[in-house]
Structures are given as structure tokens and as C-alpha cells.
Write a protein that binds this DNA or RNA. Structure first.
Lengths: 144, 144
DNA sequence: TTTTGTGCAAAGAGTTTGCAGGTTG
DNA sequence: CAACCTGCAAACTCTTTGCACAAAA
């Protein structure tokens, strides 16, 4: 599950293994959830010359190859994370910005019915649900 | 449901009713689903001097006031629509870009369990689910 | 007539692209 | 050594902001 996996995934599709690609994948795994800028910063700790554009290109590539995924938690930059860590869904509070994670299993029924109704296959890893967290919902209610 | 509604919603919070605000709201209602640029273009049909920044400021305001909502269907600009048209959820195909709408009622069970589990109140109008549409899923399967 | 809103222009985030030179297989 | 990848700088898209003037209440 180190270089070897990356190498084979890349080679299988005619891509090359470069130090930059390895560094980006390692950074995504180390950081868990992170934006392209954060990943670039992390990579530069070890290899200062690596450019942001390489990070962007590499993230696209790693996503295509299936090793990472991204989601949009806020208004700004997207968040990347390892593809195998996608067993949870993010709840983003529009009011206070809090982010909580709930097991992806909570979506099973929904994804099932979407598949039945329209054949659509939801990409759960990409899903972020926006709304009001318990605390902000309570505050809002007490103001009414 | 015309000027009057807008006026009272605005006045109630200390905001003023201006022709620009009326035009933006009308445009959102006329267009159904549209980006800030599209809305600006529509508004300029009737009042060419209106600036994009006014459109942005007005959309924020209308959203705060509860007359419009937005969601992110693609990678680019967000999509705004009238708040009362929010009884559907968007399914966005990552592969071919197709967008389909399914009734929000399909989410009832999910939103219910989220409320129970963590007290989180999902904003259904803001929700877009990404994945593979039936056609693209079929194509992908046949290639394996 | 005070406060709020608008237009304009410039700046700011986030991302993409063209190209020359470097690296991988 | 041929195809591919990277760094750099510039360009691009979308959005925000500062400010002087205009309009609403």
C-alpha cells in the first residue's frame, strides 16, 4: 500500500511514477482532509520546489486513478482525502461552520432508492450536506 | 407575491427596496436556475447599468431574507433559484454533466434520521448529489 | 438629510495553461 | 531518446471590496 500501489495504478493507465506524485499522495494520506494549498505546503516541507500547479495536476490524476476523492465543505477550496477513507459523509453547518462526520451507512436507503428510481449511482465520498447543526438550530428556534 | 412581498421582507430587517433588488428577484424567478452572471445578463436586458457586484450583493441579501437559495451543481459558479421551488434535489452526473431533479420527498427518511442522530437540520434546497447517471453507469459497467 | 445602496475599478482567491527544460521508462 | 512531467509565469474565472456618488425613507 505504498509506492507499489501507486506505481501499479499509474502504470496501468500509461502514467509515470514521479517523486512529486508520491509526495502528493503521501501528503493527502497524512493530512486526512486538506485543500490543494495545504497539500502543497505539506509537500514543500520535504521538497520545496514543488509547484502548486503540479499539485493540482496530480490531484486530478490521483482522483482519476481512484486513489483520492474530493468534496466541497465550504465556499472556498475543495477538500481532498484518501479514497479509502470515504466511509463517512460530512455535515457542514452554514451558520457556525462546524463540520461533523456521520457514517456513510446512513445513506444506504437513499442511495438504494435513487438507484431504483433513476439508476443514478451517488458518489458518497463527494457528498457534503449543508444545513444547521444542533446548536445553531436550537439558537435559531429560541429566537423565533 | 410581487413587490409587496419583497418590500415587507426587506423592511422587516431594515433593508431598503430598490429597483435593482426587484429586478434581481424577478430575474431569479424568471430563470428558475441560474448563475450570478446569467442573472446579471437578464437584469441588464431591462436596466443595462446594473453592475455584477450589485447582483452578488443582492443575491446574498435575498438569500439571507429567505427568498432565494443556491446550490453548487458544477465546478464553477453556483446556481440560484427561488426559495419556494426547493422541493427537488439535483443529481449531477460527474461524467457527462447531465442534471436531473428528483422530488425532495425521497430524502425524508434521511433528513429524519440525521435530525434524530445528531440534531442536524439538512438544507435540502442546497443539496446536490454527484455521481453517475444511469447511462454513464451502464457504459462504465460494460467497459469492465 | 441621514443612512443605505450602487457603480466602478481594482484587488483577491482559486485554478488552469503554454511553454521550455528536465525526467521517466 | 521519445514521450511525458514539472516549474514558472501569465492568464482566467468567479467573487469581494473601497470609495465617491446617488437614492430611499
Amino acid at each position: 500500500m505504498k509506492s507499489d500501489e501507486l506505481q501499479s495504478e499509474l502504470r496501468a493507465r500509461g502514467y509515470r511514477l514521479t517523486p512529486q506524485r508520491q509526495l502528493v499522495l503521501d501528503a493527502v494520506r497524512r493530512l486526512g482532509h486538506s485543500t490543494p494549498e495545504e497539500i502543497a505546503a505539506e509537500v514543500r516541507e520535504q521538497s520545496p520546489a514543488v509547484n502548486v500547479s503540479t499539485v493540482y495536476r496530480t490531484l486530478d490524476l490521483l482522483e482519476e486513478v481512484g486513489l483520492v476523492t474530493h468534496t466541497h465543505l465550504g465556499h472556498g477550496a475543495p477538500t481532498y482525502h484518501p479514497a479509502d477513507e470515504s466511509d463517512h459523509v460530512h455535515l457542514v453547518c452554514t451558520e457556525c461552520g462546524a463540520i461533523e462526520a456521520v457514517p456513510a451507512s446512513i445513506l444506504e436507503r437513499l442511495t438504494g432508492s435513487l438507484r431504483e428510481v433513476s439508476g443514478f449511482e451517488v458518489n458518497v465520498a463527494h457528498l457534503a450536506m449543508h444545513g444547521r447543526c444542533a446548536a445553531c438550530a436550537a439558537t435559531a428556534k429560541s429566537k423565533e
